[in-house]
Write a protein that binds this DNA or RNA. Structure first.
Lengths: 336, 336
DNA sequence: GCATAATATGTAATCCTTTACAATAAGCCC
DNA sequence: GGGCTTATTGTAAAGGATTACATATTATGC
């Protein structure tokens, strides 16, 4: 079962078997054939631990996300894993449940496993945790971290572009009174989305009214409560943009509970384009987060780094508005 | 950075360091302390490949699911991974996209990685693929396979019990005309659910009407089409049970499109209890699939097997009905 | 056919732990 | 303190690949 047996059977040395195994040049075709036959006959599978021990690389990448249960992540995981598989890389995968302590221990575990690279695709990160990987000399990539972008490799997403598209859509429908449901401002990514939104408003000369900005917990429940808060305002906005789809779904439920018809009485736009966006009624117009591309960029960056190639600074990925049925012109009587 | 350095620093042999590292008995406290200090000071991390090479185990489990994008799986993955982490096991994870060829290659890859055990949590399996693991002597567990249950370790779920509960609920509301949306009958699990449903009907003395059984592709779209088919029947059922929640959501959409109010005009019950079940309107009554428990059983079985413990034949897990807002008494005029 | 260059192949060290077995030190009893 | 038992520690082989270097084989040119 080991390489020595194969070598014996093929009447060559272990070195030659190894060369064949790894596709190295300088082996006569005839010899390679003998070796291949021996490998097949003996159902030989090289021992990855022995190989890794020798070459110092494991062909194992780590992938850390915030939460598998959050429907944002599966596509990202899927994309990352597919690319890895295509390159013969295995992915060990874990999630932090939004807990920085768990991020820390996850990274530590991956280092102990001696992965070749780590993709930290969590919404929030902490430098302490990342430093472990740096010290271990393991390449790493972050997703969409504004603060740390200059210190660590990062895959940026241009939220502003997405909100600008959403806003232009709402403006073209005739809306001027636009509310926003933001995420907890302790999270860098949530702050980023809110800043991007208010910037988009300003760039269209629209005054930002703080009473039309509500904070939710990024989950359905939070969206519901935030929407309830917005609906209690007087005057209230004719359109609301939520900073993620889960909260948009909650907002939809809140509107429904208050007998406010979407989109007739209120337009609603989400962010992310989760699968649920098409499952609720009305189907949610939303800004598509390019998460497959994020995963692809992240993998690509790690792969190149591992190969020793240099990686160019990448431009930010663009989200795009997907128009479905939750937006419509504002009801005439409600004009400002 | 290797154990030799640590040994030198602690003034002991590598054997002693190894003993300390693995918590073996027979090391004087004083010595152990010196070793621990050396380990800490040098930030020493044992090389898992060298260890695995020597001991023949990797502390790596493989987890194969059908589809990460299917919201059925995240909870299962989550549960499995948490348990594994608690035992110091890493999970390498992949999905087949419902493709038996990919199941085959996934298992092969895991064997090549020399995982210690494999959990095959896919809806459909193929013996050919499984045999690879058997031959490699790697413990394996399946989820809910009727056909292969006697040949391979399996975590069974008692679908019938779930359907019985659902049926009793509908009967108690006054329904007698009950339709069913099944999955593709080429899938063992889909057949299992359909058989369980019809069995439940019969056990209540209700005649099974084939024109009230529609087939969908297990996705939202399939549910929509299947429901359209059922709604075209005359007479049509006053309640419909779907064999998974995704199709139930599709059915809901179809009903809505046909201006049929759920639950007033039609009661609807799903199966699985996915997160979406609470996000649609009305919130879906559904039979909760005990997938966290499935994952726990699967892990437990593998873990025990790996430890050399014998595992008892387990009883089937019970799904339970979760009543939400998609069921109500049938409209009076529509009584049979 | 022979010297020389180019190709193929082989030998043995190396990667880092674990662990069987050997050796030493400590503890105990009289 | 000497002899014996028991508790600690050490030595070195093994585990299975890769790879620098050495060697053998074939090809080339004349």
């Amino acid at each position: 079962m080991d390489i020595v047996q194969v070598a014996k059977r093929a009447n060559v040395s272990t070195a030659t078997v190894s060369r064949v195994l790894n596709g190295f040049p300088g082996v006569r075709e005839k010899t390679a054939l003998r070796v291949h036959r021996a490998i097949a006959e003996m159902h030989y599978i090289p021992n990855p631990n022995a190989r890794s021990l020798r070459v110092g690389r494991t062909r194992l990448f780590g992938l850390i996300v915030s939460d598998v249960n959050n429907p944002f992540f599966p596509e990202l995981i899927d994309a990352f894993e597919s690319l890895a598989t295509a390159e013969g890389i295995e992915v060990i995968f874990t999630h932090t449940n939004y807990d920085l302590k768990r991020l820390h221990s996850s990274i530590r575990r991956m280092i102990e496993r001696s992965v070749d690279a780590i993709a930290v695709m969590t919404s929030e990160v902490e430098e302490d945790a990342l430093q472990q990987a740096v010290q271990a000399g393991i390449p790493m990539v972050l997703m969409n971290q504004r603060k740390l972008a200059h210190k660590y490799p990062n895959v940026p997403v241009d939220y502003s572009a997405g909100f600008r598209e959403a806003l232009e859509h709402l403006l073209s429908l005739g809306h001027r009174d636009i509310g926003f449901i933001a995420g907890p401002q302790s999270l860098d990514s949530a702050r980023g989305r809110k800043d991007a939104f208010t910037a988009a408003l300003k760039s269209h000369g629209i005054h930002v009214r703080n009473e039309w900005i509500a904070i939710g917990d990024l989950r359905v429940e939070g969206g519901r409560k935030a929407m309830d808060a917005l609906l209690a305002r007087s005057p209230r906005p004719t359109a609301v943009v939520a900073s993620n789809d889960l909260m948009a779904v909650g907002a939809l439920q809140a509107a429904h509970a208050s007998r406010i018809h979407v989109p007739r009485d209120l337009s609603l736009i989400g962010f992310d384009d989760l699968p649920i966006a098409t499952m609720v009624h009305p189907a949610l117009s939303t800004i598509r987060h390019p998460r497959r591309e994020v995963a692809a960029r992240a993998f690509d960056l790690l792969w190149k780094t591992v190969q020793g190639e240099s990686v160019a600074e990448a431009s930010a990925l663009q989200p795009h508005l997907v128009i479905r049925n939750s937006t419509a012109p504002p009801a005439g009587l409600k004009r400002r």
